[in-house]
Design a protein around this nucleic acid. Sequence first.
DNA 1: CGTTAGTTTGAGAGGACTCAAAGTCTGTGG
DNA 2: CCACAGACTTTGAGTCCTCTCAAACTAACG
Lengths: 193, 193
Amino acid sequence: MYIEKIIETISTSYATLTEECKDDLKKASKILTLDKEAKIVKEGQFADKLYFVVRGGARAYYLKNGKDITDWFAFEGEFVSAIDSFFQDSPTMYTIELLEPTTLLQISRETVFALTNKHHCFEKLGRIAVTKTMLELQERVVSIQFESALQKYTNLINARPDIIQRVQLTHIASYIGVTLETLSRIRNPKYRI
Amino acid sequence: MYIEKIIETISTSYATLTEECKDDLKKASKILTLDKEAKIVKEGQFADKLYFVVRGGARAYYLKNGKDITDWFAFEGEFVSAIDSFFQDSPTMYTIELLEPTTLLQISRETVFALTNKHHCFEKLGRIAVTKTMLELQERVVSIQFESALQKYTNLINARPDIIQRVQLTHIASYIGVTLETLSRIRNPKYRI
DNA sequence: CGTTAGTTTGAGAGGACTCAAAGTCTGTGG
DNA sequence: CCACAGACTTTGAGTCCTCTCAAACTAACG
């Protein structure tokens, strides 16, 4: 897939970019195609890249008491980065790994900030992308807060039906905040009396 | 407090605004001083206002199975709105009520969007404010997800020590996702053996 | 096919919930 | 300035959902 087409997709789905901005973006970004399980960010690093998923998917996870907790999924058409690090210039708690063979558009933090300052349209794109994430997190807080394991699972299926097909149950379990065993029981229709 | 000074505070703490932008903002916004318990947004409304808290505080809550769940606090120097409605132009699930006698700067959604399009600096301010909220929500998801009631309470105290003095325990309990009774027990030192 | 990763099933324990009641604080009126 | 009402918080007892630990089952891959 040509880089122009990818940038056009971004421009269409997030915020319209001017030709000059698209051109600047094109010059400063590059396409990566990586294997499943490749790690594009590792815990402790300063995450100085932003990625746009062209094809495939990724998950961000962190370790809590030695357990792998999935905190975020990103698939085609979505941006992904270690947000704790990218926005605060601190070492990240996250590792981001690819769930499938994946094609990414890679943009450096430096580029993002430069384009953000130079082009109003790119700032807008950033604002819209961040707003989208904020609203998604908001709904997640509401879902996690006072719902049963079954309800949280149902909420996820409704919000992102594709995830179930593409992600291991282990990761879905930690994403919605239940143990793998509980998730397995929930999914068994007998459980729902 | 003069409106110029409030806008200057915003400009200093979020993103520097040009004189023209500050002027436009000044013309289109107004100061409100309201009593404790006043509701600035009600469930079911289209929230067409954004507020900046000059003095005082507010909480956003929603009803779940008849129970009042606090979802957000805002105090001096923070923006507050019914974000589900404000950004998606849909009726809100939230009611926002003042916790104290409060002074607010009120800005209409129309103004926000107009200034966002007209001034790059205002777009930037929006991006920064939204990013701040996004990161806060992110930490909240992590805190809620796999922590005990005591840990969640401790996290909140560390993140916002002022809240405990200014907000009822009932609201703090629902904010961190535990019952009032559990919160009360947690706060009793005897409980922690 | 054997090996390993991933998922399901089982049994028992525990943290937080619910329902209930007793305290404690705060503000208003006599 | 005290007393009472209502709001808020604490304490108690019992229950239940989800967790933990353990083991069996299943699928995927070389």
